[in-house]
Amino acid sequence: MGEEMRVREPSVLMVDDEKRVADAYALRLEDVADVTVAYGGEEALDTVDGGHQPDVVLLDRHMPGLSGDEVLDRLRERELRTRVIMVTAIDPDLGVLDMPFDDYLSKPVEREDLYAAVDQQCRVLAYELLGEYFQLESKRAVVAAELLPEETANNERLADIEEHLAEIETRVRSLLPEAEELLSSFSGIDR
């Protein structure tokens, strides 16, 4: 894969209680991603609760206080639109089959493998978001085509959908180089 990713600059949250390790992985990604570092589970949760929605979370499993497994469960409870890659020295066992992570990398992780994993998870996220976008946009387009403007004016539900569409579109464009082509081909369909 080389030293580049196909996705544009993703937002990555690196979570590891070992400052040197967290900083080393963040340094590996700084040229290709917007990286935020959290030196523990509580700090990671505070970061996302503060409004930061990373595209990818790189999460160590073995941390004092809140373990990576607990952080993972709490991230999933928050229903964030983010992908989680466990980056850990803990060898996986059968227990990982029940864990809601998206990828699992065993330390140490080479730069190319880190890039590839982040890139892959960002593309998966972008396509998930596109599916949601297309579903909402088709509903919005049908309503706009079939109802009179005075029927749709000041409709809170429609306004919420339009706001959500704009947020999704911005996020997809930040992740996928081919987003413009995908979005324009969808909007070109006559409903």
Score class of each variant (00 low, 15 high):
D17R: 01
V87C: 09
R157H: 08
E112N: 05
F134N: 05
A24G: 12
A22C: 03
R191A: 12
V56F: 00
D34W: 00
G131R: 04
D23S: 12
E146I: 00
L136H: 01
A33G: 06
A22Q: 01
R61N: 11
Y133H: 14
M86C: 14
R81T: 06
D91H: 11
Y115P: 01
E151D: 14
M86L: 15
A33C: 13
L148N: 11
L94F: 11
E150V: 10
L66T: 03
E112A: 15
L29A: 04
E156Q: 13
L158P: 03
L94M: 08
D190Q: 12
L158T: 08
S185E: 15
T82C: 15
C122P: 13
E128D: 14
M1S: 15
E42R: 15
R83G: 08
V96C: 07
V15R: 07
P108D: 03
R83D: 05
Q121P: 01
G40S: 09
I189S: 07
V96K: 03
S106A: 10
E150W: 10
V32G: 05
E167C: 09
G41Q: 01
E180L: 09
P92H: 09
R74H: 11
E112I: 03
F134E: 12
D102Y: 08
R83E: 13
V37C: 12
G51T: 05
D17K: 01
A44D: 09
L129M: 15
D17L: 11
C122H: 03
D60W: 00
R123E: 15
L130T: 06
M1E: 05
S106K: 05
V7Q: 04
A159H: 07
P108N: 09
V71D: 04
D113L: 13
D119H: 10
L182F: 00
R83T: 02
D60P: 01
S184M: 10
E77Y: 02
E18R: 07
G51F: 04
R123L: 12
L175V: 07
A22G: 10
P149G: 07
A141G: 02
S174G: 15
A126R: 03
L114C: 04
P177M: 04
R111L: 05
H164L: 14
S67L: 01
E77Q: 14
A144C: 08
D103R: 14
A26P: 02
R74G: 09
E3V: 00
E150T: 05
D49V: 03
L125C: 06
G41T: 04
L80Q: 08
T47L: 11
E110D: 13
E43V: 09
E132M: 10
K139I: 11
L130R: 10
G50Y: 06
E3P: 00
D93I: 13
E146Q: 11
P10M: 03
D49M: 08
K107N: 08
R76L: 10
V56G: 05
V37R: 02
E151V: 01
E132K: 14
L59M: 02
G40I: 06
Q121K: 11
M1C: 05
A24K: 02
R6V: 13
G40E: 05
V48D: 09
A144S: 10
T47F: 05
R76E: 07
A179G: 04
E167Y: 01
E79R: 15
R20D: 15
E151K: 13
P64G: 07
D103E: 13
V35Q: 06
P177K: 06
D91E: 15
L176M: 11
Q53N: 03
E79W: 00
